[in-house]
Design a protein around this nucleic acid. Sequence first.
DNA 1: AAATATGTAGACATCTTTATCCAGATATCG
DNA 2: CGATATCTGGATAAAGATGTCTACATATTT
Lengths: 154, 154
Amino acid sequence: MFSQTSEYALRAAVYLAMRAPNPQTAQQIASECRVPTDYLFKALQPLSRAGLLSAQRGKHGGFSLTRDPSEISILDIIQAVDPIKRIRHCPLGLKEHGIRLCPVHKKLDDALCAIEETFRDSMLSDLIDPTADIVPLCVKPELIPETALHAKPY
Amino acid sequence: MFSQTSEYALRAAVYLAMRAPNPQTAQQIASECRVPTDYLFKALQPLSRAGLLSAQRGKHGGFSLTRDPSEISILDIIQAVDPIKRIRHCPLGLKEHGIRLCPVHKKLDDALCAIEETFRDSMLSDLIDPTADIVPLCVKPELIPETALHAKPY
DNA sequence: AAATATGTAGACATCTTTATCCAGATATCG
DNA sequence: CGATATCTGGATAAAGATGTCTACATATTT
């Protein structure tokens, strides 16, 4: 339903949010998020192009979010990587009635619309609430390396 | 988001509902629903196997729904053709906490759940309400051949 | 400037989805 | 029974998604 690429991008974004504002290398992200390292670059490229994250080359480089996690939604990530294709015109391409959708496609589009709205209201910060008893990416709090948690930005 | 195959299957199901209980040939369905004829068979096979429609070979054969359109939901069609894959376990495969989902995947699964519920409540009969000013498949009422509309079952 | 750590980009491989083709099975009609 | 209409199922092709590999560009450190 949601593409593998969006799943990867979302994991990475959440991971970066957890460590914001410190940049994290592709190696780190890939390893913690269980994403194939080489493919991760592909998944992050659209996020970079959309201006959601910045990439820094060279030693102490890596990826970091360009905004506060409270200002980036799941929808931002999804739309950048693998946009939800709303149904705007009749998929049968009939011109008898152009814009208005028949009940079938209206229903399908309603579902897509609902997903958009749900994801629009879900900020990365909501997903990493430290008071919750489960932290994202299915890693227990005590498994997150102290060094990473308390790292200072360069 | 939804596969092409489900879209085709849904179109066919709605078309059959509009003409129920008369069987319609793949040719008719394909032509009216704008589905590649040869591919239509593939799309309908899972519906047939799920017992949602029955296929009759030979002259005056064709496909027909096995239940009243008011008792077949969009979800029935979707699940038969291209099931919605709910997120039941952590996609990262970590065993630290098995069943309960972290906030990220919980959110994604909530969206999938909402789709299921919406589609579960949408019956084919709802989509072909003759009092609506738009009939499904984006064909105007007057474009539906009289012969088809008033055909009697064999 | 050289060495090293990192992201970028394009080529390629593999798998899945979508689409096409065709020989065969089966039902109806005359 | 023979001819015709129709669905079935398997082979194959084309396109897109996913995954891997490698040469290269750029930033940091010494």
